[in-house]
C-alpha cells in the first residue's frame, strides 16, 4: 500500500479538492473520500450510488484504484449515478 495524492471534483460542487487516498482503495472508497468533502456540505445529499470517472472511464466500484493506471495528481470525477 502506498499513499496516492489525487485531485477530485464532485460534480455540482464549486471547486476541486486535493485528497490523499491509498492505492489499495477501491473506486468506491475513493469516491466516498472525495464525496466526504462535498456532499452534505455544498452539494445536496442524495440516495444514489457514488461513481468515479477516471480518464473518461467510469470505474467499477470494486476496482482497486492503484491498478487502474492512475498516476499521482491525476484528476477523478465523482458523481451520483442516477
Amino acid at each position: 500500500m502506498a499513499l496516492l495524492p489525487l485531485s477530485g471534483t464532485f460534480l455540482g460542487d464549486v471547486t476541486t479538492v486535493g485528497v490523499v487516498v491509498d492505492d489499495e482503495d477501491t473506486a468506491e472508497a475513493v469516491g466516498q473520500k472525495i464525496a466526504h468533502h462535498a456532499v452534505g456540505r455544498r452539494v445536496a445529499a442524495r440516495t444514489a450510488p457514488i461513481r468515479v470517472r477516471l480518464g473518461g472511464r467510469v470505474l467499477d466500484p470494486d476496482e482497486i484504484i492503484g491498478r487502474t493506471g492512475v498516476s499521482p495528481y491525476d484528476h477523478v470525477e465523482v458523481f451520483f449515478d442516477e
Binding site: 471534483t9 460534480l11 464549486v14 471547486t15 479538492v17 486535493g18
Partner: peptide, 25 residues
C-alpha cells in the same frame, strides 16, 4: 459541515483554488 477538512487544489500559476467545476455549472 460548513467547515473544510482538506484543501482545494490550487492553480500553479495564480495560486487560487481551481474552480472549473463552477465554470461547468
Amino acid at each position: 459541515e460548513t467547515f473544510p477538512e482538506t484543501l482545494p487544489v490550487a492553480c500553479n500559476l495564480c495560486q487560487l483554488p481551481i474552480v472549473r467545476a463552477a465554470g461547468v455549472l
